[in-house]
Design a protein around this nucleic acid. Structure first.
Lengths: 343, 343
DNA sequence: TTGTACGCGTTATCAC
DNA sequence: GTGATAACGCGTACAA
C-alpha cells in the first residue's frame, strides 16, 4: 500500500494542510520542511494523481488527436510534443482517429475527441482532418483549450490556438527554385481543394508564377481531394501523360511519395526526364542516387511550440484567467537536392 | 458543472448504489433501467474517471514506453496498439525515452517508466532499449503488468509478457534468398552484440549457412553496437571496402537505411554491384527503380497482440487472479523485390 | 433488488 | 504558519 499524505502527517506530527501546502509550493517553517522531506523520502511518498484530479479537476494529461501515424513529419512532431509536455509535467494521451474513408472521417475524428474527453484531459492538441472543425465544438464549450497543428480551421481561428508554417512562403520558395531552373511546364499537386493548408500552398505557388508574369494554368494545379492513395497515383500518372511536365511540385508528404511512384511507373527519371521539388523530406535520405529538393518543416519547433502554448493555456486557465488563443507561424526551409535539372 | 451520479439519483428517485451498479453492468429492474437511461441522456452524465480511479485504483491508461518514434515499423505498431487499447476502453499514455547517447540511455528509459508510473497506469507496453531490464523492476514490484514488444529480456522472461517475431526464422529465410541466388560473400549486419533480437537474427543467418555446409566467417557478421548513425555508416562503408561482398543482409530498419547510404556513397549499385535484403520495408516503396527484398514484420498483428495481452492481464489482475505472462511469437514475411541478382 | 453510510487521498476554507 | 474539517464523485459492504 502506497504511503499517503496522512502517513506523512502521522510521522511528522504535522497537519494535513501543512503537508499539502508545502507539497504544492507553499512556505512552511524550515524545520517542518526538513521533517516533511525526510518523511517523503523514508516512506517513498508519491502524490495520488487521481485524488488530486478529483479535487482540482485537472488530470495532467493532454490529448493528442491525429488522423494517423503515417509519416516521419507527423512522427517527429508527436515525439517532440510528448517530450516537451512531459517536461511541463503533462502526460500525452495519444489518440489516432485512424484509417477510414473520407465519408466516415468526420465520425472517427469525433470519436477520437470524445474518447480523450471521456478519459479526461486538460487540453487537446489536434491535427485536424475534419476541415470545418465541428469535432472541436464540444471541448471548446467545455472550456478545454485546443491547439491545432499543421492545419488551420478558419471558422474557429478566434477561439483556438494554432502552430503552422508559412505555407504561402514555403510553396513560393519551392516554385521559385523550379522557375529559376527554367521550368515553365510545371505540374503542381496539392491536398483537397477544401483543405486550408493545401489552398495556402497553392496560393504561394501561383504567387511565384504571377510575380514573374507567367500564366497560371488551372489545369496544371491539381487538388487531390480525399481520394485514396491508389487513385491519387492514377490521377498523377494521368496528368503526367496529359501535360508532359518538365517539373513537378508536390505539396505534401504523401503527394511527394506518390509522385515518385508515378514517375517510376511512367518510366520517367528524376531529374533527367522530370525535375521534382517535394515536401517533408521524402526522397531526401533514401540512399539512392537521387536526392530530392524538399520543403522541410521545422518539426521540432512545431512540436515545441504546440506543447508550450498548450501548457501556458492550461496553466492560465487553471488560475482563472484564460489566455487568448495564440497563433504561431514558423518558417519552412527548402533543402537542396539534385532533383532539379536546369533547362 | 457536470452531472454526477447524485443528480441521476435525485432525478430518478433511486439510490446511489443502484445507479452505480447498473452503470457497471449490474442488473436492475427494467423500469429503473429505463429511468436511469433517460436521466443519463437528459443530464448528459459522464462518469468521473478520477473518482472511479481513486476508488478502484485503476486509471484506465496503459503506458507505451518507446525509445523514440523513428521509423515506420514502430509507428505502425504504436498506432495499432492505440486503436486496440482504445477499443478495450484504455487510454494510451505515450512516453518516448527519447534520443540520447548510450551512456545515458539507461537513465532516460528509467525516467520514462517513472513518469508513466507517476501519472498512473494499469500496465506498461515497452519496447526496451535497456537490455537488462532494470527499468522494469519497479513496475513489476508494484504488480503492474508489463508487455514487451520487438525485443525480449531473457532475465525477466518468466515475469513479463512479450510479443515478437520468429527472429531466427526470419533471418534464415532472408539468408536463404541470398544463398539461393548464388551469393557466398555476404556481409551481414546486426544490432549490438548484447541485443537479444540482434543475436537471434544473427543465429538465423548463420543457421542458414551451416545448414548448407557453408563456412561462417565471423568477420563478415557485423554487430553494430550502439554507435551513432554516422559512425555506423562509416563502419559499413569500411566493411564493404574490406570484403567487397556480393550481397548484404541488413537485419533491421536503421541498418537497412544506412546500408543503402553506404552503397550510394561507395558508388555501388543495387543489385548490379551488390545485392541487398533488408528489413521492415526500407526501400520498398520509394518510387525508385530499385525495390528491396525486405523482411516484413506483421506490425498490425504485433500491435494487436500486445494490446490484447495487456488488456487481459489488467482485467485479470483487477479481478484478483493475475494471469501468467504470455509470450506470442509471430511470423515475419519476406517481401520480394528486385534487389537480388542471381549469380 | 435497493438504499445508507463510509472511505478512497487530496485540496481548500476557515479559524486559530 | 498551522490544523481541523468539509468537499470532490464514485464503489461497495452492509443492512433492509
Amino acid at each position: 500500500m502506497a504511503a499517503t499524505i496522512k502517513d506523512i502527517a502521522r510521522r511528522t506530527g504535522l497537519g494535513l494542510a501543512t503537508i499539502s501546502k508545502y507539497l504544492n509550493g507553499g512556505h512552511v517553517l524550515p524545520q517542518n520542511q526538513a521533517a516533511i522531506e525526510e518523511a517523503v523520502r523514508a516512506l517513498d511518498y508519491k502524490v495520488n494523481e487521481a485524488a488530486r484530479t478529483l479535487k482540482t479537476r485537472r488530470t495532467g494529461y493532454v490529448g493528442l488527436v491525429l488522423p494517423a501515424l503515417t509519416n516521419s513529419f507527423i512522427m517527429e512532431i508527436v515525439q517532440q510534443i510528448q517530450l516537451d509536455l512531459r517536461a511541463c509535467g503533462f502526460g500525452t494521451a495519444l489518440c489516432c482517429s485512424a484509417p477510414g474513408t473520407d465519408s466516415i472521417r468526420r465520425q472517427t475524428e469525433l470519436e477520437a475527441i470524445d474518447f480523450v474527453l471521456k478519459k479526461g484531459v486538460d487540453g487537446i492538441i489536434n491535427l485536424p482532418q475534419n476541415e470545418d472543425g465541428v469535432h472541436l465544438l464540444k471541448p471548446l464549450e467545455m472550456g478545454i483549450p485546443v491547439t491545432l497543428i499543421d492545419k488551420q480551421i478558419p471558422e474557429l481561428a478566434d477561439r483556438i490556438s494554432s502552430v503552422m508554417i508559412d505555407n504561402v512562403g514555403a510553396a513560393r520558395t519551392a516554385a521559385d527554385e523550379l522557375l529559376n531552373a527554367g521550368h515553365r511546364n510545371i505540374l503542381a499537386l496539392f491536398h483537397g481543394e477544401t483543405n486550408y493548408t493545401g489552398r495556402r500552398r497553392a496560393e504561394g505557388f501561383m504567387d511565384a508564377l504571377r510575380q514573374r508574369g507567367y500564366p497560371v494554368d488551372p489545369d496544371r494545379i491539381i487538388y487531390m481531394g480525399t481520394t485514396s492513395s491508389a487513385s491519387s497515383l492514377d490521377l498523377i500518372r494521368e496528368k503526367i501523360r496529359q501535360f508532359r511536365p518538365t517539373a513537378i511540385f508536390a505539396a505534401n508528404f504523401g503527394l511527394t511519395s506518390r509522385t515518385l511512384e508515378a514517375l517510376e511507373a511512367e518510366g520517367l527519371r528524376v531529374p533527367s526526364d522530370v525535375s521534382v521539388v517535394g515536401f517533408d523530406g521524402v526522397g531526401v535520405n533514401d540512399g539512392y542516387g537521387v536526392k530530392l529538393w524538399s520543403v522541410m518543416q521545422p518539426t521540432v519547433q512545431i512540436g515545441s511550440a504546440a506543447a508550450q502554448i498548450m501548457s501556458e493555456q492550461i496553466t492560465a486557465a487553471a488560475q482563472g484567467n484564460p489566455l487568448p488563443p495564440q497563433v504561431r507561424t514558423l518558417q519552412a526551409q527548402l533543402l537542396p537536392g539534385n532533383s532539379v535539372r536546369i533547362i
